[in-house]
């Protein structure tokens, strides 16, 4: 057994007649940045949704370390230390940036109905700590201090991305899944984000799996790349080798180019 923080073993997901992911093996190694790439509809996000528990695989297993999380609920998986962002940012639009990040702390907090009503000292402390932590995370991702208490709907696209990453980091993950973090960014912003991903990995001792379309980002920061096409894994390995793989070129550019 390797000590992969998260691993998919022969996972398959079938929607009706469509096999979105077909027997894919994927392993994220400790401390690495790995990328999943592939054309639109290749099954990348479906794979992410299985890793985080939003979808239950039709067959195959998902392991978190030694633990089988195939049938675990998303909130349980988050509590076990897996956090994610979404391709089309999914913040809570009417909440402030700070409140959004405090939601990320939810699984590390305990107050229930009675705790919330009667507010014993430990609840106040927990709440204060969550608020401070939210501020720290937002500072870490580079959100300007005067935007902390603005509703996220009123933030710019780039800032929303930052808040979403801060929200994921607030849950104390050891595995971070980023679904197209540079979508909609210009080249300069993308390069900035790529640098930031490495910084997060190093400072937080995280293992990061990302779905990415921007090849510059993928080649620049990934230790390993996995390529999906039509739900199947067609190549895997270090970025330079994958780029030369005729099957990958074919998947992206069509048969004639290969």
């Amino acid at each position: 057994m390797s000590d992969a923080p998260i691993r998919a073993e022969k996972v398959t997901k079938v929607f009706g007649g469509l096999t979105a992911v077909d027997g894919v093996d994927l392993e994220l190694r400790r401390g690495e940045v790995a990328a999943v790439i592939g054309p639109n509809g290749a099954g990348k996000t479906t794979l992410f949704n299985m890793l985080t528990g939003l979808y239950r695989p039709t067959s195959g297993r998902i392991r978190l370390g030694e633990r089988d999380i195939t049938r675990a609920r998303p909130d349980q998986i988050t509590a076990l230390g897996v956090a994610r962002t979404f391709q089309n940012i999914r913040l809570f639009p009417t909440m402030t940036a700070r409140q959004n990040v405090m939601i990320g702390r939810h699984s590390r907090m305990k107050a229930g109905v009675f705790g919330s009503i009667f507010r014993p000292p430990w609840v106040n402390r927990e709440e204060r700590e969550a608020e401070e932590r939210a501020g720290e995370e937002l500072k870490f991702v580079g959100l300007k201090a005067d935007l902390l208490d603005r509703t996220t709907a009123s933030l710019s696209y780039g800032d929303q991305r930052r808040v979403e990453i801060a929200r994921a980091l607030a849950s104390d993950p050891h595995v971070l899944l980023l679904d197209e973090p540079t979508a909609g960014m210009d080249p300069r912003e993308s390069a900035e984000l790529a640098g930031f991903v490495l910084k997060v990995r190093d400072e937080r001792k995280l293992s990061i799996l990302l779905i990415e379309h921007d090849m510059k980002v993928v080649m620049g920061i990934s230790d390993r790349v996995t390529v999906l096409d039509h739900g199947e894994l067609i190549a895997e390995g270090d970025p330079a080798a994958v780029r030369q793989d005729p099957k990958v070129i074919e998947a992206y550019l069509g048969r004639s180019a290969a």
Partner: peptide
């Protein structure tokens, strides 16, 4: 409270809430 925030989150985006 923590619970009140969680309710708003569920109301606004259940998928994001459960994922968080």
């Amino acid at each position: 409270s923590r619970l009140g925030r969680a309710w708003v989150a569920l109301r606004e985006d259940e998928v994001a809430a459960i994922s968080m």
